[in-house]
Each structure stands twice: as structure tokens, then as C-alpha cells.
Simulated assay, not measured.
Amino acid sequence: MDNVKILGASMDYTKENGFVGRIQFEIVGQQNQYEMTIHSRKRTEWGYGLFFLNESGDEDELLAVEDMLEEDDELFDYLVNAAEEKLVLEHH
């Protein structure tokens, strides 16, 4: 993923909430930084939300990134994996 820079990632697990992850990232060539929150009960199907990381930015760029996440499974998996790696590290 040459056009995506991971700025930070985390994932927690509780019986009540399942797996909840957060990935902060930026897309090369865009002004904005983003945070994607992800949620799953069993780590198979992920729901997500996409937000501006620090401050509101260009709404069109946010929508373009959302389209990228919907269309590019490799990108989505790359971001999910960044958070999943943090879950493993924190629980060992």
C-alpha cells in the first residue's frame, strides 16, 4: 500500500463489545488525515466508520476515501490488519 501511511492503530476486545479497532492513516497526496473505527464480534465481518482525524477537512476527499474502502478489499484488509497486529501485541 504505497499510497497509504499508517499513523497509529489499536484494537481492544471485550465480551460485551467484541473487537473494536481504530486506525489513523493518511492518503498520499491528500491534505486530510483520517481515523477508521472498526467493529466485529468474531473478526470475520467488519463494520466501520470513517472520520477526520484531527479536524474537519474536505468532505469530497472523505467521500473519496470511503469509496476506496468500499471498492478496494486489499486496502480495507490492510487497515484492519494494522489494528489486529496491535491486539496480538497487547495480549501477549
Rank of each mutant, 00 (worst) to 15 (best):
E66N: 15
T44C: 13
H92C: 02
L87T: 10
A64E: 08
R43M: 15
K86P: 02
N17V: 07
A82N: 07
E71S: 14
E16C: 05
S10C: 02
E84R: 15
V65S: 08
E66F: 04
H92W: 11
S56H: 03
E59K: 12
M11A: 13
A83L: 01
V88S: 11
A83K: 06
E55W: 02
G49E: 07
Q33T: 11
H92Q: 13
R43Q: 15
D12R: 10
E55G: 00
F19M: 10
F25T: 01
D72W: 01
E90V: 00
F51L: 03
I27C: 03
Y48F: 15
G49H: 05
R43N: 09
G57E: 02
I6S: 01
K5A: 08
I38W: 00
K86Y: 10
G57A: 00
F51Q: 05
G49Y: 01
K86N: 04
L50P: 04
E70W: 08
A9E: 03
L89Y: 05
D73C: 02
Y13S: 12
G47N: 15
L7T: 05
K86D: 10
M68K: 13
N17K: 11
A83W: 06
D73N: 12
Q31I: 04
E61I: 06
A64P: 06
E59I: 12
L69W: 11
A9Q: 05
N32Y: 04
D73Q: 10
E85K: 09
L53T: 01
D60W: 02
E74A: 12
